[in-house]
């Protein structure tokens, strides 16, 4: 299986990438690690006419501390996120979840920005950055924008990014409450989550329970009101619309969400 024909271009800088995107028009796509895009291109589910390879833009690969926040360049690999000592101590939820993405080969190539911009509702990191209250920094022809994670994911594979706009940085406030957990339910190690749950303090988000990562608002309110964790977890499926597919039906996913939220809340409490 090989992709349909396209024209390959390579950008050495963000400015060059934005320029190439203007030239490429609507049928151009940015290519980072390619581990979400290339499989879709082989299946003809994505048929871009032009690929703009941004994988070598070194200025977008970094993990640093800045004004009480952690900032991560969009082209930082999952492997670098998973192994970062700074993230291991300041944002262990993110470091752990990045280590759960795919397998080692995928983590060597895949990037945090690529995963977020791709916006697969079954991916690990969108729900994690939503739980962490991250802000996504973008650059486009008309300048720079900062988009809260809660406004970034619009629908299945659809984000607030405009055509030709590039996600450049993920900015995450250092959490005040330290307890965290990431629960990922799969049949095999390398699979996407059938259901996943991210917990950071009182923030609880869901993977693959709708067309975007979802905040488990009813659970959060119950925890904040002092409910027993098991009782709070019983609200996990409220307001969700999980997919019904070969990996599991709707009711099964709703059950999984309740079980995994309970485990996640308990693990997070044990770590706080």
């Amino acid at each position: 299986m090989i992709p349909a024909p396209f024209t390959y271009t390579r950008a050495a800088s963000v400015d060059e990438a934005l320029e190439l995107a203007v030239q490429g028009g609507e049928d151009a796509k940015f290519l980072a690690g390619g581990h979400s895009l290339l499989p879709l291109m082989k299946l003809r589910l994505a048929v871009p006419e032009t690929l703009i390879d941004i994988g070598r833009i070194g200025e977008l690969s970094y993990i640093a501390e800045q004004d009480g926040h952690i900032v991560i360049g969009a082209l930082t690999s999952h492997d670098a996120v998973a192994r970062s000592g700074l993230l291991g101590s300041e944002l262990p939820l993110l470091a752990h979840a990045a280590g759960q993405v795919g397998d080692p080969q995928v983590r060597h190539r895949g990037t945090i920005g690529g995963s977020l911009a791709h916006a697969d509702p079954a991916a690990d990191l969108p729900a994690v950055i939503l739980a962490l209250g991250a802000t996504l920094v973008t650059r486009g022809a008309s300048g720079s924008r900062e988009i809260p994670a809660g406004d970034f994911f619009l629908d299945l594979f659809e984000t607030a990014l405009r055509p030709g706009e590039l996600l450049t940085e993920i900015r995450i406030p250092k959490p005040h409450v330290t307890g965290w957990s990431y629960q990922k339910f799969t049949k095999r190690g390398i699979d996407w989550a059938i259901v996943g749950v991210a917990v950071q303090g009182g923030s609880v988000t869901l993977v693959n329970m709708g067309s975007t990562p979802l905040r488990a608002g009813a659970v959060e309110r119950a925890v904040a009101a002092g409910s027993e964790l098991r009782d709070a977890a019983a609200h996990a499926a409220e307001g969700t619309s999980p997919p019904d597919d070969l990996n599991g039906g709707r009711a099964y996913r709703e059950h999984l969400a309740r079980v995994l939220v309970a485990r996640g809340l308990e693990e997070a409490r044990s770590r706080s």
């Binding site: 299986m1 290519l31 290339l38 390879d53």
Partner: peptide
Amino acid sequence: TSSCGACTVLLDGRSVKSCTVLAAQ
């Protein structure tokens, strides 16, 4: 489909699945 790993090679010293990397990359 980048699942099985039979095509694994080292690119600049690190394992990658060479069916999911363009030669151009």
